[in-house]
Structures are given as C-alpha cells and as structure tokens.
C-alpha cells in the first residue's frame, strides 16, 4: 500500500510547528500504524534527517503511551482502538493521512507528536486512590463485593490514561478520565470512606491543571480506546454534587482556592 502522510513537526515546546508531507510506499496491510512510522523513520535516519518523535511503548494497547490524532480522530478511525493497535488494512490505499499531536491547553507539545500529559497524573495525585498503608489490610475476603459491582468498577478501571478523551473534547476537558477513577473507587466498598474528599480534590486538581469543562459533546467516549461509558461522567457529577452539599472538606478546600482567584 502507499500513502501520503502529512505529519506535524515541531522541534521543541517553545518553537513553531508545521505539517510536513512524506510519501510512504510498499506498506504491508499487516503493519500497524506505528510500524509504518517506524519504516518512515528509518528512511529519515538513512537520509540524516531527524525522525518523527512519538510516544509509544507496549504496542499492545494497554500502556496508554501512544497518542496521535489521525485524520482528525484521536487514535484514528477505528472505535475502541489505540494507535498502536491500528493496522494499515483499516485504511484505503493511496490516500492522504494527517497526523497531529493531542491538542489541548493542558497538554503542551514537547516535540513533534509528543505532548506533556503530566496534568493527568496531577489529577490522580489529588485523590485517585484508597489511602491504605502497606500492611494494614484485612483478609481479602473480609468484605464481599457483588460481582455486578466489581464488573462495573472494572469497566471504569480499564482506563489507560492516554488522554484521547481530552484531545477529542472541544473544551479540552478531562471529565471522562477523572470520572473513571472516581467511579471505580466509589463503586468498590474499599473506596467509600474517602469518597467525598476524593471527588472534591480530583475535580479541583482537574480545574487547576488547565482542563476545560464538560458541555456534553460526548466526543470523549467516542474517542476512548477502552470505550469507557459516558454514564461515569453522570456518576462523577452526582458524586461531586453530593460531596459538595455534605462534605466539610469542600468548605475547607474551597475557601483558600477562592482567595487565590
């Protein structure tokens, strides 16, 4: 197969970027999208040009590293698929393909297709866990968890933290990402004691990190390679509202924040 690739090149965070066009030929339909870029990169290196920098690692759709917008879609045209699991057999031969980095205020471009996604980590750091110290746990069977609950929590926990939801959102919101973690730990009984504190802290960190607000475009769940359901955003809103109405932490947290504004 052959394609004409238009790829975003940007040398560094502080520099301007632009699309550069690269023709590629002799591409097997059994190659993954990233393997096609590997071939192009080997050609570039052979010519002494800097290869296209992109994040990638496991190449089996679970580490969440790979992140590129392909023809306008985060992770490309196939639903429920990361870029690394996208194969060239899913593209029409002899077409143009545009490749860009994630575009969002909270994700500055570092080089070419690589962006800084540490804003997502800051959201988790603000409460996306159960605060249990090593050694403190009771026997695993001390608390039973209904299968339906465990399955629902798993559905949320399947998030790979790639940031496609943010890239797809016209507001650059991280609602689906944050909702997935909030919902997982709200469903599991082990997460209940910190439930209010967690949702307040994470939503606040989300705002601080420069993510936008949700205005119900539903683009996030469409783009999500793990197809995290939209209903978790509704759950996040419920969790937040109930925490805001009932929780002392909200009052404590909100006050200094209000002063900074």
């Amino acid at each position: 197969m052959e394609f004409t690739l238009h790829i975003w090149r940007q040398h560094g965070a502080a520099e301007h970027g632009a699309f550069v066009t690269y023709p590629v030929r002799g591409i097997s339909p059994d190659l993954s999208f990233l393997e096609m870029l590997d071939i192009l990169n080997e050609e570039l290196v052979g010519r002494g040009e800097a290869p296209i920098a992109f994040d990638h690692d496991c190449r089996e759709g679970i580490c969440g590293s790979c992140a590129m917008v392909i023809n306008g879609d985060p992770h490309g045209p196939l639903p429920g698929t990361t870029t690394c699991q996208l194969y060239m057999r899913h593209f029409q031969n002899a077409t143009d393909i545009t490749v860009e980095p994630w575009r969002a205020r909270a994700f500055p471009v570092l080089r070419d297709l690589i962006v800084d996604r540490s804003a997502l980590d800051s959201v988790i750091q603000a409460g996306g866990y159960v605060s249990v110290n090593t050694g403190a746990a009771p026997d695993a069977h001390a608390i039973t968890v209904a299968k339906q609950a465990a399955d629902a929590a798993f559905e949320a926990a399947a998030c790979i933290g790639c940031g496609a939801c943010v890239a797809a959102c016209p507001n650059g919101a991280a609602m689906l990402f944050t909702a997935a973690k909030v919902a997982q730990l709200a469903i599991m009984p082990q997460g209940r004691p910190e439930r209010s504190r967690r949702v307040i802290g994470m939503v606040e960190a989300m705002d601080d990190a420069g993510f936008g607000n949700c205005t119900n475009h539903y683009a996030c769940t469409e783009a999500c390679p793990k197809q995290i359901p939209l209903r978790f955003i509704a759950q996040l809103n419920r969790e937040f509202l109930s925490a805001a109405l009932s929780s002392r932490e909200f009052v404590e947290l909100a006050r200094p924040h209000a002063h900074e504004e």
């Binding site: 069977h141 039973t144 209904a146 299968k147 798993f154 926990a157 082990q190």
Partner: peptide, 18 residues
C-alpha cells in the same frame, strides 16, 4: 489482601468472593 484493600476490581463470583 493489600491489593483488594486498594480497591482493585478483581474478578468475583456471584456471592461476591474472589
């Protein structure tokens, strides 16, 4: 024990056990 306490959604049976 520790991983369950962290809220990890391990596979469970209908009675709620691992």
């Amino acid at each position: 024990d520790h991983c369950v306490a962290q809220g990890i959604p391990f596979a469970r049976d209908y009675a709620g056990y691992l």
